[in-house]
Design a protein around this nucleic acid. Structure first.
Length: 509
DNA sequence: GGCTATGTCT
């Protein structure tokens, strides 16, 4: 009884009716539902989620008032996290929640809500939350502002992020070395190391007393852009200023050489590290195993792994994951599975990354059934398939022409109520429908597109069209087919224009 | 999903 109450439809608002292959692949169905549907989350967490998803912006405040739920900080945070790929709904939920008479959000809930709104590029709402926070004297904290800055940067507005940093004091936050390092890191991680270096680091390194962390951030920024000579210059500069490079610094350089394809330099650098008695830690070894393996040097990667064991440095899960991944990519999935079993024998518990790597390897070798087995096996290790897991399997199913199986998995993603498709998922499915173009495929693509947009995944027009020239046109076609079908279905309805259920868009037929 | 730096996944 509970189970049926908890069942959440994939699309409450658009009533998506995808082809439902109920009897086409019983195997898939049993593996999937029997094992994955055992909820590890408590019913108390799941009930509100279903009600939230099925309510409208109008009805939500009343729904929340009627619910006799103690909205603790952790429950609110958890709910917002689970609605991560349902961002408009999550923001609606938080807004309705703040309207409840006896509820005061916590700092972390505000941060989550601000992150969600900013991710939707709804900066007005994000800043309104900040104002509420301030009125309650809860913030904004430096972390809150870092969240907004990061969203500005990923939306292509790094200047606004820098402005935000420079005007932190206006929001009641003090600028210090930590916030300086944070903004540098945000810019570097988005690939804007030039900006971080020229506009901030060079100008303010004296004022904030840049430390070895600041230098490491910039060096890593150059490494991410495959500019290892620049990274080395930063190291030189660092030493000249009397700062000692740490093992982190060396690990950053080592990884930079591998990322830039400079395998020989990486190896020489590692030998230098040994010669100069630098600390060689588990991160160093993991970097080597991964870097050598990706370069196709599987034997050397294994040797390094063995050397690590000999020296008494215990591999971490990340080390095993790196080895398993490179075995999958450059050796064989069967050998990767041997490593997986070794790992279990040593008493390690695989994490979600381990499973995603193994499942990807199995899919890549065409062992789809075995991949499904691993997907259900995850529960033994208190892991649940996440959106990445689903995306990998759906991608390979679609590539193999098994689009119905892909759609079936897609429909079942939310069966536990907390794994929702993201932009990648929709792109995979919509693209494969456009490749196949079977009757009805474009209609389904159109429905998916609308659902995608309603869930807050709106690729920016300029980025999507410049990177994939056909993309925008494709979207228009998909919508066209969808609405043509709608029109045909409702012939009695004489209107020739249909309002799209998306703010600000109107589609004429 | 976290928040000041490095390794595994997307």
């Amino acid at each position: 009884m509970l189970a049926s109450r908890l069942r959440i439809t994939n699309s409450p608002s658009t009533s998506l009716s995808l082809p439902s292959p109920t009897h086409a692949f019983p195997r898939l169905r049993t593996t999937y539902t029997s094992n994955i549907a055992s909820p590890s989350s408590t019913p108390e967490d799941a009930v509100p989620l279903a009600l939230i998803l099925n309510s409208t912006a109008m009805s939500l405040p009343q729904v929340l008032r009627d619910l006799e739920v103690d909205w603790t900080q952790s429950l609110v945070d958890k709910t917002l996290k689970r609605l991560w790929n349902h961002a408009p709904k999550a923001v609606q939920f938080f807004q309705a929640l703040t309207g409840l008479p006896h509820y005061t959000p916590s700092v972390s809930s505000f941060d989550h809500a601000i992150d969600l709104a900013a991710r939707l590029r709804d900066y007005k709402t994000a800043w309104r939350f900040v104002a509420q926070m301030r009125a309650l004297r809860l913030g904004p904290t430096p972390k809150t502002l870092a969240i907004i800055a990061e969203r500005y940067v990923s939306a292509g507005k790094p200047d606004r992020a820098i402005q935000l940093f420079l005007s932190m004091h206006k929001h009641g936050c003090r600028q210090d070395l930590t916030s300086f390092n944070t903004i540098l890191d945000i810019l570097c991680k988005s690939g804007r190391v030039e900006m971080a270096y020229n506009n901030l680091f060079k100008v303010f390194k004296g004022r904030f007393r840049a430390d070895s962390v600041s230098y490491n951030i910039i060096a890593n920024g150059w490494c991410l852009r495959k500019r290892t000579p620049r990274a080395l210059e930063v190291l030189k500069d660092m030493v000249e200023r009397g700062l000692t490079p740490s093992s982190t610094t060396y690990n950053i350089m080592l990884n930079g050489f591998f990322k830039s394809g400079q395998i020989d330099e990486a190896w020489k650098f590692f030998l230098q590290m040994k010669k100069r008695k630098c600390v060689i830690d588990v991160v160093t070894y993991t970097t080597l195993v991964h870097g050598l393996g990706i370069a196709g040097e599987i034997r050397r990667a294994r040797n390094v792994f063995n050397e690590m064991m000999r020296k008494g440095i215990l591999p971490s899960i990340a080390t095993y994951n790196a080895l398993i991944q490179v075995m999958c990519k450059k050796d064989s999935v069967d050998n990767a599975l041997i490593v997986f079993d070794d790992m279990l024998r040593e008493g390690y518990v695989p994490n979600i990354t381990t499973y995603n790597v193994v499942i990807r390897g199995l899919c890549h070798s065409g062992y789809m059934d075995k991949a499904m087995d691993f997907m259900s096996r995850m529960h033994q290790d208190r892991c649940k398939p996440n959106v990445q897991t689903f995306n990998v399997v759906i991608r390979y199913l679609c590539a193999a022409g098994e689009i119905e199986k892909g759609l079936h998995l897609f429909e079942n993603m939310g069966s536990e109520g907390d794994c929702f498709p993201n932009l990648d998922t929709y792109n995979i499915l919509i693209n494969s429908m456009f490749v196949r173009k079977k009757a009805n495929d474009l209609v389904v693509a159109g429905k998916l597109l609308i659902e995608m947009i309603e869930r807050g995944f709106l690729p920016r027009r300029d980025t999507s069209s410049s990177r994939h020239p056909g993309k925008y046109l494709q979207c228009k076609y998909a919508l066209h087919y969808y609405y043509r079908e709608q029109l045909w279905k409702s012939k009695s309805n004489k209107s020739s224009a249909i309002e799209l259920p998306i703010a600000g868009l109107r589609y004429q037929i």
